[in-house]
Design a protein around this nucleic acid. Structure first.
Length: 601
RNA sequence: GGGGUCGUAGCUCAAUCGGUUAGAGCAGCGGACUCAUAAUCCGUCGGUUCCAGGUUCGAGUCCUGGCGGCCCUACCA
């Protein structure tokens, strides 16, 4: 039995608008990886959900005058629709504001960290808004810069002199939302999670060392060179004063009251990654599975034997997924102490002799820009996903984005590249299938001709299939998706070469049986092509199988490839991938520039 | 301010630990072919590896400085 695999994509903030940058960073690569594993028949679960707590969501809801829940529900539907449109096929797409199991689970994480002495209570002074009865985060504060006197400095940075500011020292601080809302400094307290011992913790160190060797280099340098060995790890607050979020529990695991928790919630970053777990639980309940199979391993089991946890994220999320969330998971363990806990606080997570799984890898991508500049809705520098997919289709969208993924460095959406790459798909891949199938349809009664001669070529064809299949599989397992695309396109290239070598259109005039023999071999490339392409362009791959008159493939090993038997009747060939007109691209670029200019004025 | 990262052909990207003459695809140019979506196949052109120094037998790769892009950062998910 293969190891269970849990794949997660970064939880999108409900407040935000989906764009290609999100897609290419965390959703598309995860979806390709998962679809590949489903082909193999791996025990894989793919979960995500919207991240719905936090200040940005409360402010958004208030600005529109709707209840928080209604506001985030709407955001959730927006994200769900975008994911559906792009064929991102989650097993479950949840919401962190669904009370069960997210709230009790997040509270349990908090309580166990507390019991383990990982949390420290700290008194602090924060800017408070009397008008809205709450403490404001720095970015929602404006005031007069204490360095240069600029009157519209933000709480974190002065736009005029560029100084990094301390919000509490601003002169005349007021709310960014409402200039009449004068802020005052008030005493409050928060819990902090002290990360300083993380990297040297004996429960963490071996895992961290292994992770270091496995990680993509862009992630490794960030986590190790910069964060752990550079800045060092510090304490981070995990609670806030807010009316929206997971409330702090009022009793600890031993049944003692926790004082003064009114109005306090878990900080959104704390409950967000727990959303991965509750999304898994939700899915498991709905499908009658055991969620613990994906999250919990036995303490004495080697880490390379238990479940595989893989987080696909953008680079902005690296610290949380490589350090903060693993710390939260590792420090849940209450060895020996679990028995003393009152029944009502009984655990749903790791018990005695068990551990939460720590991520096997965090294949973070970099950022994706549009024609050299950041995607930006307010300046019109965006591409509307709905419109785009409606016009160009989901598979050409996925294919181009996969070829342009920012795997090692930031990259760009470029309209001219969109045409160039998808035309290559049409020419090399689509046309290859069609040129064979039409030929067979015209001259061989649309049935697979019998094998005949070409023994050397038959061996070469078989070798191409094996080599390309391995190339695609290795590349996907190594999170190098652009290389994987070269693999399946390469198989079509091998096929085009084969046809040019054997030239069945010439043989047809001289040796009908040999002509059929050549086509018989060429046809054998098409089933594996439909399989290797499927994770990237699922709809097109399915259409190819329909054109081959093949049923959906049963999950299982990719090799040996499915043969097409002589006499098998084929389906109807039609254009597999459309090409794009040059004028269309010119018009798109013009429209983009026009939008940006009108937003500018 | 501090830190990180990237800069390679007209374009998009490769290049293991520092190791042969820096490789692909696209675009361009020339040719072959006609089954196919003006497609495919062959050949060819194309480089001061951002700049200036340094270490080394040897540097795209390591070091120092500079320029440019991007990211992170002291209670932003």
């Amino acid at each position: 039995m293969s190891r269970p695999i849990l794949v997660t994509s970064a939880l999108p903030y409900a407040n935000g608008a989906p764009h290609f940058g999100h897609l290419v960073g965390a959703y598309l690569p995860a979806d390709i990886f998962v679809r590949y594993h489903r082909l193999l028949g791996s025990d894989v679960a793919f979960v995500c959900g919207t991240d719905e707590h936090g200040v940005a969501n409360t402010l958004g809801a208030e600005r529109e005058g709707v209840p928080y829940q209604e506001y985030v529900d709407r955001g959730h539907r927006r994200w769900q629709a975008a994911m559906d449109r792009l064929g991102i096929d989650f097993d479950n797409f949840s919401q962190t504001s669904r009370r069960d199991p997210q709230y009790p689970l997040a509270q349990e994480f908090f309580l166990r960290l507390l019991k383990n002495g990982r949390l420290k209570r700290r008194d602090i002074r924060q800017l408070y808004s009397p008008a809205t009865s709450r403490f404001l985060a720095d970015r929602y504060v404006v005031g007069t810069c204490y360095v240069c006197g600029c009157e519209s400095a933000r709480g974190d940075e002065c736009p005029s002199c560029g100084t990094w500011l301390e919000a509490a020292k601003l002169v005349n601080p007021r709310s960014a939302e409402d200039a009449d809302d004068k802020l005052e400094l008030r005493e409050t307290w928060q819990y902090e999670l002290d990360l300083a011992p993380f990297a040297t913790d004996p429960a963490v160190k071996p895992w961290l060392d292994e992770l270091r060797g496995r990680m993509k280099t862009n992630v490794r340098s960030f986590v190790f060179d910069k964060t752990i060995e550079g800045e060092g790890l510090v304490a981070r607050p995990i609670t806030r004063d807010l009316p929206w979020g997971v409330p702090l529990p009022d009793h600890d695991l031993d049944g003692n009251p926790i004082e003064d928790v009114d109005g306090k919630v878990l900080y959104v970053w704390f409950d967000a990654p727990i959303g991965y777990i509750s999304s898994t639980i939700e899915w498991a309940r709905a499908t009658g599975r055991d969620w613990r199979r994906y999250w919990i391993r036995s303490a004495d089991e080697a880490p390379d034997k238990g479940p595989r946890l893989i987080h696909f994220i953008g680079k902005d999320n690296i610290t949380f997924h490589c350090i903060v969330f693993p710390a939260m998971l590792a420090w849940q363990t209450l060895e020996g102490a679990a028995g003393e806990i009152p029944e009502k606080n009984k655990l749903r997570g790791a018990g005695d002799g068990e551990r939460w799984v720590l991520p096997e890898n965090v294949p973070a991508n970099e950022f994706f820009n549009l024609e050299g500049k950041k995607f930006n809705k307010s300046t019109g520098w965006v591409i509307d996903i709905d419109e785009f997919v409606a016009k160009y289709g989901v598979d050409r969208t996925r294919f181009y984005l996969a070829t342009a993924m920012p795997e090692t460095a930031d990259s760009d959406f470029l309209w001219r590249e969109f045409k160039a790459k998808t035309d290559t798909l049409a020419n090399v891949f689509g046309n290859f299938a069609v040129r064979i199938l039409k030929f067979v349809g015209k001259h061989f009664d649309n049935r697979v001709p019998p094998a005949h001669g070409f023994e050397d070529e038959a061996a070469r064809v078989a070798e191409c299939i094996e080599t390309r299949t391995r190339q695609v599989a290795d590349a996907i397992e190594g999170y190098t998706f652009r290389k994987a695309i070269e693999g399946f396109l390469g198989l079509a290239e091998d096929g085009n070469l084969f046809l040019d070598r054997t030239a069945p259109w010439k043989l047809r005039k001289t040796d009908e049986a040999a002509c059929g023999g050549a086509l018989h071999l060429a046809l054998q490339l098409l089933p594996p092509l439909s399989v290797l392409a499927a994770p990237f362009i699922p709809e097109t791959a399915a259409r190819l199988r329909a054109m081959l008159n093949l049923p959906a493939r049963e999950p299982g090993p990719l090799l040996p490839a499915e043969p097409l038997a002589a006499g098998h009747e084929l389906g109807t060939p039609e254009v597999l991938v459309q090409k794009i007109e040059a004028d269309e691209i010119a018009a798109e670029v013009e429209a983009l520039n026009a939008r940006a200019e009108s937003a500018d004025s």
